[in-house]
Structures are given as C-alpha cells and as structure tokens.
C-alpha cells in the first residue's frame, strides 16, 4: 500500500471521466428522457381531452335522440289528429250527403205521390164524371160543373 504517482494519474483520469460524462452522456440522455416524459404527459392529456369530448358528444347525441323522439311523437300525434279530423269530416260530409239524398229522394217521392194523386184525382174525377154521365145519361159539361168537380177532387 504505497502511495505513489498512480494517485495523481487516477485523480486526473477521474476528472476527465467526470467531465466527459457531464458533457456528452448526461445532458443528451436527460433531454431524451424529458422529451419522452413530455410526450407521455401530452398523450395522457390528449386522452383525457378525448374522453371528455366523447362524454360531451354522447350527451349531444342523447339530446338529439330525445329531440327527434319528441318531434316524431309530435308528428305522429299531429297526423293522428289530422286523420281523426279527416274521418270526422268525411263522416259529416257523408251524413250530410246522405241526408241530402234522403231528402231529395223524399222530395221526389213526395212529388211523385203528388203527381200520382193529381193523376188519380183526375182519373177519379173523370171516373166520377163518366159514372155520373152514365147515371144521368147525359153529358156533363166539365166547364159548367168545374166547381163541382173541383170540390170533389179536393175531398179526395
């Protein structure tokens, strides 16, 4: 265990190695490590942001779906209402038309009855006159006996 010049040589080599490490080894690697740390931090932040955006997008989608549902329900309700209205309208129209037709038919029947009555009245009057002619054996002048005939047909 002799102390000799080796000590001085080792001393100098030590500083040479330390200088080299401090100059060429430590800083570049630390830079790389720090760059990577920053990258990872950025990536995590981006992931976090993406997550938040997904949540908000989900919320938006839900809102849209809810809106669409409400709208479609409204549309359906409207259509239902409109259909009901149309049916109602059609019913009313049909009823009115039916009533009108019934009324028309009644009127025409009434008219025909009236006509037939008139005819019958005429014929009955004719018949009555013919019968009276037969009975009286003479001609009855309808013009002279108009009042009588009219009185008769009015009673029929």
């Amino acid at each position: 265990m002799n102390i000799n010049l080796t000590l001085v040589a080792q001393f100098l080599w030590f500083f040479a190695f330390v200088w080299f490490t401090a100059r060429f080894v430590w800083p570049p690697l630390m830079r790389a490590v720090e760059d990577r740390q920053k990258k990872i931090a950025d990536g995590l932040a981006a992931a976090e942001k993406g997550q938040q955006e997904l949540v908000s997008a989900n919320g938006r989608v839900e809102e849209l779906v809810r809106g669409a549902k409400a709208q479609s329900q409204e549309l359906i309700a409207n259509a239902q209402k409109r259909a009901d209205e149309m049916v109602e309208q059609a019913k009313t129209a049909a009823k009115t038309e039916g009533e009108r037709q019934i009324a028309a038919a009644r009127a025409s029947i009434e008219q025909e009855i009236q006509q037939a009555r008139e005819q019958l009245r005429g014929q009955v009057a004719q018949l009555a006159m013919t019968g009276a002619e037969q009975i009286l054996m003479r001609e009855i002048d309808p013009a002279k006996h108009k009042d009588v005939l009219d009185k008769l047909s009015a009673r029929l």
Partner: peptide
C-alpha cells in the same frame, strides 16, 4: 463504462427506447 453509455446516448431517442 462511460464509452458504452456514450454510444447508447448518441443514438438515444425520445420515443420507445
């Protein structure tokens, strides 16, 4: 030792090591 580290550090990447 130091040279090995230096060689590795020279090709160091901030990506996947």
């Amino acid at each position: 030792g130091i040279g090995f580290m230096w060689l590795v550090v020279r090709g160091a990447t901030a990506g996947v090591p």
